[in-house]
Design a protein around this nucleic acid. Structure first.
Lengths: 341, 341
DNA sequence: CTGAAAGCGCTTACAG
DNA sequence: CTGAAAGCGCTTACAG
């Protein structure tokens, strides 16, 4: 029985060198493409490697080169449903891009207060760089990374222009969505948003304000409710907005929006007939809703991939843009009247 | 300016050996605790290390020991909202447990059809073991892992008893939930579930049937709807159930349940007065619902942690239970009448 | 109790 | 174009 097992001794560079009667150096060169080597021997090596299924040991390679071929992805350790589609999709983009470049992704959880795990991973030399996902206004991780001299890029936005950042263009997107609502001929459009601790929520609010300014309308401060990070706060905001006779409500994300829709339904207020509603983020959460909800669509997977590529470029010392913004799509659905574009 | 930078040359084992006038061997022993060493020199070494912030290079250590101190976590590359809270929470448990044991977690995405990324990671010697999360009925990854001789554990359930598995006790939990509904004095309780490709959905159905059998009632085949993986299928199932005059509907997960609730609301059917409703899984999705929904609560983080611990034990050659099931909590809320327990 | 030496599987000046 | 040798930063028999 045991003897039938595949020979699971991994073959090393020495094995192929001996089999081919060349030096390890030569084999190494055939693989890396570095250094002079005759096309002839290179083909022989490659053929042998292919035939005998030799895989270089990346760990050993890394030791010799002082590289790890790993990057870390720091994700928040305190979960909230809001960001899940974002994390899952961007994660995929990151993993695929990394794979395509023979890198692997190490997962590390961080919390607002502690970046011990990230610190340990860096101290242990386990990664060549790190991706920080969606930052807080005060982010200890950013501070940590800046004082370590390790390449990193923020998948998100920061005011600190020395930090490499790649993000969806939330500001322009949110502005366009609000413009779409204002174009519908209404002006009393309220905003309900999540925690201002997240930079992204501040960015979204800026987009909201941009749209008003561009339309030459003053956004009323009393139509704006931020830090609604619990259903009861959303509920209270909705009630106040109703008292203010709003014609539309824009929600900063899908979780807020789904709560808003439930409350409106509970009060028998028709969407969009009485109050139009839209969300700054489009996830499965609202896909099934009736009426279907107008919202912004971002390509989080592409965002992850580009963030990863940026980091890898940075690691390899190639030039990278200090800040990149990705586009968005505005999906107009019944909740704001599909006829108006 | 440049000169003010922290010296970021990492200090090596040789540096501390020379500083202390001992051999690398001695330093290594002080750290690992292996081999004889006088308490005196051990303390000296430890003190120096502490004072000079020496961190062993885990990569080099791994090379020498033919270990990586990494484990892989394989997650589905094709995302669906259903499993998000599950993945996010279990991921956290895994990461924390790994960290606590000086291991790190590499992320790898797999799809039903391709496990190329996982294969590459193993071939590259990047991990000592792998965690497979929630399996499909026909899972290529399981097949792959079995033929490689690499330790792995399934965070989920499989009929193949040779596979190490850790899972929530979905069967017992679902059975208890259904019993709770039957205890309420109703018998026409329907089931709507997601894809049968997932083992977990089959397990849940077993729990449903167990409860009926224990109650001495025959579950009606026409009250059971599986493979409802799209809202329209759920809708059609709900309509058929209404025609059958069901008194209760049990949903296999929160996404199904939220669609069901919307449809019932759209038809002005009162929950729980006309039809009681419950879900086999409790996520934030239903927390805000009115009425609050009765459902099962699993501790996914604990599940992740235990799965990880099991894998690490397996890697270290310690004995492990071939199969472990974790408990659950039944949260009774208005959607099934809180008064009935 | 301690150390010299070989080894883990690669890469990379350096010499030819 | 090719190879011997040193080195990456550790560990671990083996000898003392």
């Amino acid at each position: 029985m045991e003897t039938l097992h595949k020979e699971n001794k991994k073959i090393t560079i020495l094995d192929v060198a001996e089999a081919l009667n060349v030096s390890k150096t030569t084999v190494s060169r055939a693989l890396s493409g570095k250094g002079r080597i005759s096309e002839d021997t290179r083909q022989r090596v490659l053929a042998y490697i292919e035939a005998n299924d030799y895989k270089p040991n990346v760990i050993a390679k890394g030791l010799a080169q002082k590289k790890t071929y790993n990057i870390a992805l720091a994700i928040p350790g305190d979960c909230n449903l809001v960001d899940m589609p974002f994390f899952q999709n961007s994660m995929q983009g990151i993993c695929e891009e990394a794979s395509a470049n023979d890198y692997d992704v190490m997962l590390v959880t961080t919390t607002a207060s502690s970046c011990a795990n990230l610190e340990r991973m860096i101290a242990n030399n386990k990664v060549d760089g790190v991706i920080l996902s969606r930052s807080l206004v005060k982010d200890r991780n950013v501070a940590l990374l800046k004082e370590q001299s390790i390449p990193f890029v923020l998948m998100g936005t920061s005011r600190d222009s020395r930090i490499l950042q790649v993000d969806n263009d939330h500001r322009a997107g949110c502005s366009e969505l609000v413009r779409h609502m204002l174009d519908g001929g209404i002006t009393r459009v309220g905003l309900i948003g999540g925690s201002k601790n997240y930079v992204v929520n501040r960015t979204r609010r800026q987009g909201y304000e941009d749209a008003f300014k561009n339309a030459g309308v003053q956004p009323a401060a009393k139509l704006i409710f931020e830090d609604c990070d619990r259903p009861d706060k959303v509920e209270s905001a909705v009630e106040k907005l109703i008292r203010e006779n709003v014609q539309g409500i824009v929600c900063m994300d899908d979780v807020v929006c789904s709560v808003v829709l439930q409350i409106l339904a509970g009060k028998n207020i028709q969407v969009p007939q009485q109050i139009r509603t839209a969300s700054f983020y489009d996830s499965t959460l609202l896909k099934n809703n009736k009426p279907a909800v107008t919202s912004l669509l971002f390509d989080d997977k592409a965002l992850g991939a580009l963030t990863c590529r940026t980091l890898l470029r940075r690691i390899q010392g190639e030039p990278v843009a200090p800040r990149t913004l990705l586009g968005y799509e505005l999906i107009i659905r019944e909740s704001t009247f599909p006829c108006v574009t």
